[in-house]
Each structure stands twice: as structure tokens, then as C-alpha cells.
Amino acid sequence: MPAVATNPTLKGVHLTRTYGDGAKRRAALRDVSIDLFPGQLVLLMGPSGSGKSTLLAVMSGLLEPDSGQVLAEDGGDLRDVWTMTPKEREDFRLRTTGFIFQGYNLFPALTARQQLEIVLKWGGYAGGAEARRQADDMLEKLGLLPNRHKKPAHLSGGEKQRVAIGRALVKDPTFVFADEPTSALDWENGQRVMELLRDAAHDRGASILVVSHDHRLLPYVDVYYHLEDGHLEERPLIPAGH
């Protein structure tokens, strides 16, 4: 495990979130606090309906918590993501955050390379030849360079998920959030995805939060949280083979 920086880059502090109201009121998060450090791959597990996706959405600036703070390191200061204006938050996500979801959600009409280029171009990161170079660099790291001209219909599930990972990583984000990134894949491809995410954390120093049901992912991660009924606890990692 790499050396962990002492300061977290993203802190969830006393987060609560409920859905519905009246009799239908349901707490998805009850006073959850979590720290994400640079260079760490964090796994969040828990039963279905325990609030994992909710926590991921709150931490990533997509879903506003009822109370609590999400503090992000941004240019040296800690800023509360949920006191930013929507425009600032969008801009913050653009600069810092990558997402990977269970569905690959790739544009059917675009080639693997274009799926990455579109983020660089429309995100204002790079254009033209530079965007192409960066996209190809990323595809090469993911072992997808030979597939760069293929559209999603001609890629396997594992390849598609790797393209989606490339799309999340190509702008070199500080945070990456992945909700069930392996659950649509067979174990071999799932392992490959976890290796890539681990490398992204360890080599690029990104903070990566992975939500999953799958205990087989444990050997790949640095930290393991368990969420149940809206309560979060950190659990020790049992070394592989035990």
C-alpha cells in the first residue's frame, strides 16, 4: 500500500439524507462521516438499499444532503461543496471529478477514442490533435488502443467498461466515483477493472470510491467501509487467502 497523505482530499461530515416525507419518510444516510485520501482506492459495501448510491451521490456533488458537509480540498483550502452555487459546483466537478457507472452509457455513434475526446473538448481541457493524443494515451493504458476506432456495438462488455473508465480518468480527476463498476462484468473483466482503478489511485494519486456488492473486490482496495441501514463503519481488510 502506498504512503497515504495525512490530509484527506474529500471529507463527508455528519451527513444525513432522507427520502420522501410523512409516513413514507426513509433515512438513507444517518450521520455518516467519511474521509477520502489521495492515492486510496476505497470500497463501500453494504446490502441493497443501505444507502451506498446515496452516499456516493452526496459526496460527489450530485445530491444535496439534508444536513452535514462535504468538504473538498480545492487549491489548498477546504471548501464545502454544498455551499457552492450550482455553477461553481458544476465547474468543480468538471475540474476534479470522474464517474463510472454500472451501465457504460457510451454514445452508440462514437468511437472509443471519441468517447474520451468529447470530454476533453467539451470540458475545455484540450482540442484537436492534443485531445486525440491524450485520448490515445489513456486508451493505451487501458489496453484499448487497437480498439480506438470501434463503436460500442463492436466492443465487449469489459472493453466498454474500460472505455467508460477511460472517459472518467482522461481529464486526470482528483476524485473518481464508481457505482457498481464490475457488476455487469464477468470476474475476469471485473478484476481487470479493479486493477485499472487501483493503478489510477496509486499512480495518479486519485481518491477513488467504489460501491459494490462483491466481496471478491476486497483484495484490490486500500480501505473498506460497510454501510448498513444508513450507518457507516470502517472494517479491517482481511488479507486475501483467509
Binding site: S60, E90, F92, L94, T97, F101, V119, A168
Partner: peptide
């Protein structure tokens, strides 16, 4: 195409 667009929005693309 809503899902593909949603990904781009999540990534902060205006």
C-alpha cells in the same frame, strides 16, 4: 441519449 448526456453532466460538462 439521456443517459449518455447525464454522464457528461455528471462530469461537469455544461
Amino acid at each position: 441519449s439521456a443517459k449518455e448526456f447525464a454522464i457528461l453532466l455528471a462530469l461537469g460538462i455544461p
